[in-house]
Amino acid sequence: MSGAKSKNTPSKWGMVIDQDLCTGCQACVAACVMENNISSIGEQDVSVGRSMQWIHTERFWTGQYPDVSTIFQPILCQQCGNAPCETTCPVYASVHSDSEQINLQIYNRCVGTRYCANNCPYQVRVFNWRDWPRPVPWNNQLNPDVTVRRRGVMEKCMFCIQRIRRAELTAQSEGRQVRDGEVEPACVQACPAYAIVFGRLDDPASQVSQLVKNGRAYRMLEELDTQPKVYYLTGDSNHGHNG
């Protein structure tokens, strides 16, 4: 019964990313694009910095040549508990989900002020600068559970809310609780190194709760008190020990 979620109590979903395990393979990025109907925007717009990925991997070098090592950090919406983006939206397109404790983006409400993206300290929101073409047969690849966004709308990672909701509804219909590990966002599912773990932070027995207790755990820009729900386990923890 670990990771249990009763019918009406709010849950607190979180993610732990182990930078020691991350190989920077970008499988999470590809999986996210496919799961969430993210547009492919072409060279022109990518070259001016408009890439649409909801999760992207950044590469950091440490040490001096020849003793260098590479650390990868997949960066996605940190699902702040105290989110700067939410208060800025004049039309309630950026809202907090009480039941899942996730920052939701309601595409149909968005009028495109882009204030939320300005105010996001992690710069993880992406904007639909255009309507990019989705030629046949790409349209067959669209995920029916996720809204297709049009130009002028802000979008971002929501921990694959459609998968969380499906797991919750399945569990409810079967008269049971959601099991730990039952919900896997696309990035978690695709990660070949098992570097990304997803689960409930409010369940002390869940895998994420156990990993958060790891001494290597940190959250990005913690000094801003945004209370992110994505934890990182520091990379390069064995630097100098594996040759």
Binding site: D45, V48, G49, R50, G112, R114, Y115, A117, N118, Q123, V126, F127, N128, W129, R130, D131, R151, G152
Partner: peptide, 14 residues
Amino acid sequence: EGMGVTGLTRPEYW
């Protein structure tokens, strides 16, 4: 066309 015809991008959303 969308806001793509402007020079706006990340991080200059404004």
